[in-house]
Simulated scan of single mutants.
Amino acid sequence: MGKRIGYARVSTDDQNLDLQRDALALAGCSTVYEETMSGKSADRPELGHCLKALRSGDTLVVWRLDRLGRSLPDLVGIVSSLEREGVAFESITERIETTSAAGKLIFHVFAALAEFERNLTRERTRAGLAAARARGRKGGRKPALDDRQVREIRALLRDPEIQVTDVARRYGVSRTTLYRYVGSPKSSAVV
């Protein structure tokens, strides 16, 4: 039988971990990783330590689902990763545990909802881009150099005394960007 390891998180310093500590202790957790960190932050060091400590046969226990995942897709990703490693998952408040068939079913419904949410977002994005294109707008970043600037740069680079680095600095772009617009220095000299 593996260990029951808890993870507790609050978002701000003025919040208290006592409720979560008590619930995780009652749930039989031998170790509890705790941190004060916004759930929106991808960098949660204690969660990283917790996940590294888990071994096949162990169970990760949280007080509530939102303590673990930043979003439904994030939560599904973490729990799926645990499942691949042979680690069970349990959420005390929602009474979800992946050791039983019913718990797995509930979690897979969550996974399906997360996939549905991703697909809806993708469809909305595509529809929005298509509508913008139909109105003559292009998506993406504004070009670093306009046609007039490209002509000027080509003219400048015909002079063998002028350095590519100086031209790039003058126009506020990198040498790579400059080459992307005007080609290699040899082809610019010919133009």
Rank of each mutant, 00 (worst) to 15 (best):
M1I: 09
M1Y: 07
M1G: 09
M1W: 09
K3R: 11
K3E: 08
R4V: 08
I5M: 04
I5E: 01
I5L: 07
I5Q: 02
G6R: 01
R9M: 00
S11G: 00
T12E: 05
T12F: 01
D14S: 10
Q15K: 10
N16A: 00
L17Q: 02
D18C: 05
Q20N: 02
R21Y: 04
R21P: 06
R21H: 05
A23L: 09
L24G: 01
L24D: 00
L26D: 11
S30R: 09
Y33D: 05
E34V: 01
E34I: 03
S38G: 07
G39W: 04
G39R: 08
K40P: 00
K40D: 06
R44Q: 05
L51S: 05
L51R: 14
R55Q: 13
S56H: 13
S56A: 09
S56F: 01
G57W: 08
D58H: 06
D58M: 07
L60K: 03
L60E: 03
V62Q: 08
W63L: 00
R64I: 00
L68W: 03
P73V: 02
D74A: 04
D74E: 07
L75G: 04
V76T: 07
V79D: 00
S80P: 03
S80I: 03
S81H: 06
S81G: 15
F89H: 04
E90T: 15
I92L: 13
T93S: 14
E94N: 08
E94C: 06
I96W: 11
I96V: 15
T99E: 11
S100H: 12
A101I: 13
K104P: 14
F107H: 13
H108D: 15
V109W: 08
V109I: 15
A111V: 15
A111C: 12
A111G: 15
A111T: 13
F116K: 07
F116T: 03
F116W: 13
E117P: 09
N119A: 13
N119H: 14
L120M: 12
T121R: 15
T121V: 14
E123T: 09
T125K: 04
T125I: 06
R126E: 12
R126P: 01
G128A: 15
A130C: 06
A130V: 09
A130N: 10
A132V: 03
R133T: 04
R135E: 11
R141F: 03
K142I: 11
D146M: 07
D147T: 13
Q149L: 00
Q149R: 03
V150S: 09
V150H: 13
R151C: 11
E152P: 00
I153F: 05
I153Q: 11
A155K: 09
L156Q: 12
L157P: 08
D159K: 10
I162E: 01
I162D: 00
Q163K: 12
V164R: 14
D166E: 14
R169W: 02
R169T: 12
Y171Q: 01
R175Y: 04
R175V: 13
L178T: 15
L178M: 09
L178I: 15
Y179H: 11
R180H: 12
V182K: 15
V182A: 11
G183P: 14
K186W: 10
S187G: 07
S188G: 10
S188E: 09
A189T: 10
